[in-house]
Write a protein that binds this DNA or RNA. Sequence first.
DNA 1: GGTCCCTAGATACC
DNA 2: ACAGGTATCTAGGGACC
Length: 823
Amino acid sequence: MKTDFIPVDYDYFDFKGRNYIKIIGRDSKSKRICVIDSCPIYFWAILKDKIKQEKIKNIIKKIEKIKLDVKGRYTKVEKVEIHEKNFLGRKVKALKIFATNYKDLHDIADKLGMPEIEKRRGYDIGFITHYIIEKKINPLCSYEISGEVLNNSQDFGGIDMSLDVDICIKLESSKKIDNKKFTPSILSYDIETDELKLGEGEILMISLVSENFKKVITWKKTKEKKPTYVEYVKDESELIEKFIEYVKKISPDFLVGYFSDGFDLPYIKARAEKFNIKLSLGLDNSQPVFSRGINLTGKIKGIVHVDLLKFIRTAYAQYMKSETLSLNEVSKEFLGDTKKDFKIKHSSEIKSQDWNEYYEYNLHDSVLTINLFKKFWPDILEFTKTIQEPVYDVTRFGLSKYTESYILHNLEKFNEIPEKRPTYNEISFRKGIGGSKGAFVYEPNPGLYKKIAMFDFTSMHTSIILSHNLSKGTLLEKKEKDSYESPEIDIKGEKIRYYFSKEKGFFPELLKEIFKLRKKFKLEYKKNPDVVTYARSNAFKVLSASAHGYLAFFGARYYSHEASASVLAFVRKYNQDIIKKVGSAGYKVIFGDTDSVGFTLNNKSEKDVLNLLKKLNKELPEFMELELEDFYKRGIWVTTRSGTTGAKKKYALIDKNNKIKIRGFETVRRDWCKLARQIQNNIIKQILENGNEEESLDYFKEIIKKIKKRDINKEDLIIRTQLKKPLSEYKSITPHVIAAKKMQEKKIPISQGNLVEYYIAETRETKKLVRDKVKLPGEKGEYNIKYYLENQILPAVENIFQVFDVNIKEIIDGKKQTTLGDF
DNA sequence: GGTCCCTAGATACC
DNA sequence: ACAGGTATCTAGGGACC
């Protein structure tokens, strides 16, 4: 039969010793289809240069005889071909060695100890990735496929009968077609429990939300009238069974949770085990499979389990406003919606009339989760199509895997054999070398400036890679005629340069596509600024921006210390050149960090600035581009706390629409109390709007009075600090470690990654250390006036007022108000 | 017990 | 281990007096 087909989830199985791929997807009428397929299985043996034809024939004969009986499986080399290939851009002769089972490639490769074989490659890609590369049946793209329908067939051990799908097809041919509209069926879920430790408490309720479907399943009943979406069950075990029943009934393409890899799914699994319930969520009734290792991941066959938190962390976190990635904050930022206000208590302490609130709270978490998924769906789609890995992986990968997958799926265009993953020893070696010297940061002169312009390079590191063909494969051993030459790099006191070929390298070439998409989406966003274009623009900004990080990442297949060091040397050079040129064009440079330069216009016009920009761009190589970031009315730069130099990475700007941009100041740091942040924010705002400090000074004096009168809400004094390691690993016992210990004593859940909240209180004893004054928000106590004045408020405003020669410390101390004249 | 200097730790910028 | 380097700032920790 023939049908259209959109692949969603990929899996594989062995049948009679051979590997088969099993793709679950949909047709355009939303029928669920399972496609069974296979592909050639092989890896590469790269031959040393100048091996005689006769010798090669002998080697091939030898290799063809390799048979293995490992892991209870009989496998053999089925055929060997010789090919002209490229490896890291170099022309090589390579043997393509076909075998029975992908899992045995590594063992076969180990048997190839012949001295004529230089390298063995392509056995460590993973079967699903290998299949997608080989057959080009990419996730979430549309295909017209034809094949034999398996209907109660004994083929593959009767696989079609064990799968809950509409059609099961043994693939014969496929053709990529224009993308059909795919509206995935989504089910979000969330559980509420009495304990946070996996499986240690009872599951009280589970909420499920899908299109036109809202449900809270619970065995905790209220005496009040329950909402219609609440369904009662007898007990916890029936709750789990009901959950399975609904998942199977709705049978979504995506089962979505928030932190569900680390909590919801493993929790349900643990409780199901306790009650001897088979958690048969898979389309083949299999149970979720959890990865070993520190990072738990839960996989369900046929249904893509998505933990949205992971995707957001990789694809968005660094450009988000949210200070944490909690469901509440992320929902606020992306949906303008929040979690329901409900203070979670142990179920034994919940009164009958409060259960309705708890149900609603639980339900709403699933509502937020599904809405977030919908919000991010365009990005998941774009990433998946670009990276060409299954959604399950795309939503869990880190940045290095994004880049690497993109490369692996596109190597064939360059006739390239894939590089292998680094071994443990190689990783140790790479770590040993350490990193390279990074970007240049200009030291600003503190002050309040007017009429400022900012230029920055678009995707600077990536454009440098493209312009200078930098990569592992294009690196030359020595200088050649007409090669790219890096600026001088200082390596242990020795000045050296690296050289790169001008022949197109696959790595820079591949980056071009990402680079172009990034540009395109950025433009789209500028033309049509909405949440979707914004999100997409940001997503490709992330992908494009991580190219250099990939080169320098010790776990990367295409790691190159030389290329990375060269990128950074170019970054320094181009930025410093621009700073120089802007200066000699008659502007006063006040700022510069990595890829940007800020300067005052002096007597020049904005038109002059734009002309300068045009001129500077003409002098840049292809792909590199300097753009106007914006014009600003005013900007303020301060000294460092020690007061000796201008602080880098700390400044604030105001544009013509009075929009304020603050970088680095305490205002934007989540580990300062709200009070200090708000005061600083207000003062910065007033100063930038007014152009002087007068209003701020009055405001500040009022606030000081309030603090001294203890007229400040405790909520505004709470300090939040993340616990970045397990409590036992801290060498120095800081206030936030003490706060975490207190939480442990009080049995308040706290673990690595959580934010610790505390305030500094007055203590009877004259204890010196700050940590001795730490109290948890729930603990009774008075805030420590001295601490907040001297350690929170003063540091936040002191060097801002210093720009106007106002000594704020004397105001805090209650001494005479003073200006420079009194010094 | 106070001062000085250094390190650990968190968080920001790009 | 799961993109990179640069920078600021606090509080603790140890040496020294």
